[in-house]
Design a protein around this nucleic acid. Sequence first.
RNA 1: GUGAGCGUAGCUCAGCUGGUUAGAGCACCGGUCUGUGGAACCGGGGGUCGUGGGUUCAAGUCCCAUCGCUCACCCCA
Length: 424
Amino acid sequence: MAFVTRAVKGTHDLFGDPLAYHRAIVDAARRWAEAAGAAEIATPIFEFTEVFERGVGPTSDIVQKEMFTFSDRAGRSLTLRPEGTAGVVRAYNEHGMKVWPQPVRLWYAGPMFRAERPQKGRQRQFHQVGYEVLGSDQPELDAEAVALSYHILASLGLRNMRLLLGSVGDPADRERYNAYLRELLAPHAARLSEDSRRRLVTNPMRILDSKNSGDRALLAELDVRPMLAFLGSEAKAHFEAVRARLGALGVPYEVDPSIVRGLDYYVRTSWEIHHDELGAQSALGGGGRYDGLSELLGGPPAPGVGWALGIERVALAMEAEGLSPAPAPALDLYIVPLESSLVPRALEVAARFWPELRVQYALKARKPGKGLQEAEKKGARFAALLGPDEATAGTLTVKNLETGEQHTLPLEEVREWVGKGGRA
RNA sequence: GUGAGCGUAGCUCAGCUGGUUAGAGCACCGGUCUGUGGAACCGGGGGUCGUGGGUUCAAGUCCCAUCGCUCACCCCA
């Protein structure tokens, strides 16, 4: 096992069952996103570092300590994307999507990269599906986005999840709230954790998110007023409108008055979906509104709202609830040459059935018994014997491995019979 | 970045207080089986016991270091 080369820490080869989950989750997301009229977009997995520094925010943990950043040969700083939204907004601006009929709905799926210490539900390369609506700040779109993120998870069969909805207000509201927090907490700075003392200067709201027990105890004593109490009239009206739309859509949620998101670009609506059986990393996904992001990236004003789901985490949640994805499609037919001179012929026959049927063939001559056994092991629905008689007659002796029914048929009829058996 | 636990075949593991050429089950390949399967039996390939040092007559077993994995902190998807 002491291989010289191995996968980099926190990265994984994806195949078999985990890949089946992955595909099922992306398929569900595609189905719902496209139902809402979204078009797929695939942006590069690396961007100029600036895209994330300015987009995600220089004070965010992601930018400060979690990015894979490197230089290209011309000395420009590039970064493996730690999230999907900044790149999508960059593409929206770069391709002049503001002249498309607004709003523009986009969805994506792909790998993201963060240089964190791996643990359950957290890899250095992980995968997300995401949804972004750009070009309008109407509350219907917030509700639409929240509803889609919820329905996708529900359609996969998940039940034990909690949708937490809040608002981080407009930038001016946040400034007032941060000022309030600084004033409230500064006298108690000595009791705060080191991280939280730093946050007191950079971003006091993040202190509310701390899991440090000392921080939590202090916050409980101080009876901190929530962000929601500081919403300006516009942000407040927007939040109430989103709640009303969501209620009308029948999406179950709890208001979390102190919700804080780790990405600096969020304004107003903000939500997370948690699952209780995931361990420490309990967020399946989250999203929010980011009306100022386009300008941060040097573009025209383009309000937006979107979300991302962590594919690996959704897969963990499905496993925890005993949900399995559909198995990989089985082989339709396995061709068994009875003499070694017929191996090339087996290939020719297989090739003739592609791609209508999934067909494989034995690379060595097999006795009929062994051949059928092998077909069974490969998960084939039918096995075909190819002996001298069949080769001469241009036929195959085909057997349904489930029922035992067997016929010697010309190739066209084999195609018909096997094809009729139905494919997953 | 910090802490804890764990590293023996592809997988799951056994290997007692250090003592012959390191084992089992599953999987893989072949045979018993010269046109009919899922079984059984027999055989085969595959391990520098994570790596490097040390202690010892002797190390998979003890010590140190290192790497890796896992979980938690932190943070988030």
